[in-house]
Nucleic acid binder design. Structure first.
Lengths: 231, 231
DNA sequence: CGCTTCTTTGAGTTTGATCAACAATGGTGG
DNA sequence: CCACCATTGTTGATCAAACTCAAAGAAGCG
């Protein structure tokens, strides 16, 4: 695969550099890695050696508790950097990342990526904006989990994912790719799988969204937003 | 107040610069602001004009819902920067910050602070580390809210705050300053004030911690950690 | 001392968890 | 193309944690 033809380069964290000179990224890229669904990509407690970006497939970032429970703190979609934390030599990771589907990763030399991302004003701005936007999303999800009931939590997550996927152009016939199982939703939203099932059925009955196979479609965005804000 | 004598400079985000040349900060400082308890410091939707750091008192960062509920996403203690987001000209804020007690703020020229914080490798490292550490704390709190019951959530918050306050030296006779009311705990942990009250009483009965006036003391740290991890 | 702000407590209700079984779905290989 | 298997989703019964609403106490402050 040539970086110069990458359809995601314009959305990645290195987009300013990519748009100016795609070949720079090819030089920084060490490898392209295939990872099977369910495999760990980053392990809590370690310090990642490379910077990875997601070329295809989904992954999720999660915190594992001693008793086996887990909380998914975010989903990663094509174009996302696996963990901005890996860019800087600070502490070890406090979370893990697991492939949700089969995944293809681009592997970059950390040192090289640091240089690219700090090189220009514009690049630094994009890095900061990406970090703050992830921060904002995490805070909003915390608020949703803390203060909304099941139906509002699911509505909000559906809207957020839909928006992000659309920005990346990952749309098919008026809906988006959607490999999440009830279990993922449950672990991301502080609910149980059984309860997510019941609640999804309510959302479908109210004609707010539908899911089939690996696909989700929002049927009434306005109404769904009201549910997310008020229920 | 002279910056050179500031006891918090060594803990602030500009600590490398401060330790080398305290006067640099005096030059960047525009003002010292007194803010009363309950006043808003930053408003959601706006773009802050200056960079503020907390010289004394506590504040909290929160998201307000249309229906009046709110979620506190973090507490700010002396030495903290009010919002790293204000450093970079990205989008508008998605959260607000309110003074929890009477507060004294140092007000810095944004442009000047940017220069200081990007000037050296060491400064950039500290900025990144601060951002990632706040990120990690937010993710861990999300996990706690999503996957722990009331007693574990309170235990975890008490431990986290205690640790942060101790790092800053804000300790008095084996306990820490603690101006939080039940309502703040409730809004930070996704609970109601009534339920926090009942749960705190259980923690006190089990001799894990005590609170009087504006003060909290952890009586059995080991046991409290077990509660935070497993209950 | 009186007022305001916080905390405690109670009764009744609701949401969501738990445990468990069963149904549907989508591959896979024969 | 069908039978089989693994995975995922649905459903029911029961229970517990936490919420709501409300009122009474306690504590702190001027």
């Amino acid at each position: 695969m040539k970086c110069s033809e990458c359809p995601l380069g314009a959305f990645a964290i290195y987009s300013p550099t990519f748009l100016k000179s795609p070949s720079t990224l090819c030089e920084a890229r060490r490898d392209v890695l295939n990872v099977r669904a369910q495999q760990l990509i980053l392990r809590s407690g370690e310090a990642p050696e490379f910077v990875y970006t997601l070329y295809s497939g989904w992954a999720y970032r999660f915190i594992q508790f001693p008793d086996g429970r887990k909380q998914i703190s975010g989903f990663l979609i094509p174009g996302d950097t696996i963990a901005l934390e890996s860019l800087f030599p600070s502490e070890n990771l406090q979370f893990s990342v697991r492939a949700l589907t089969d995944v293809v990763l681009c592997v970059f030399e950390t040192r090289f990526m640091q240089e690219i991302l700090l090189a220009t004003q514009e690049q630094r701005r994009v890095v900061a904006a990406t970090a703050f936007s992830y921060m904002a999303e995490t805070e909003r999800r915390m608020a949703t989990i803390g203060r909304r009931r099941a139906i509002g939590r699911i509505a909000r997550l559906a809207l957020d994912l839909d928006a992000r996927l659309r920005l990346r152009g990952l749309v098919n016939d008026d809906g988006v790719e959607f490999p999440l199982k009830l279990d993922h939703l449950a672990n991301a939203l502080g609910l149980t799988q059984a309860h997510v099932s019941r609640t999804m059925i309510r959302l479908k009955q109210r004609k707010l969204l539908e899911t089939r196979r690996n696909h989700m479609r929002i049927l009434d965005r306005r109404a769904l937003e009201i549910v997310a804000d008020e229920e």
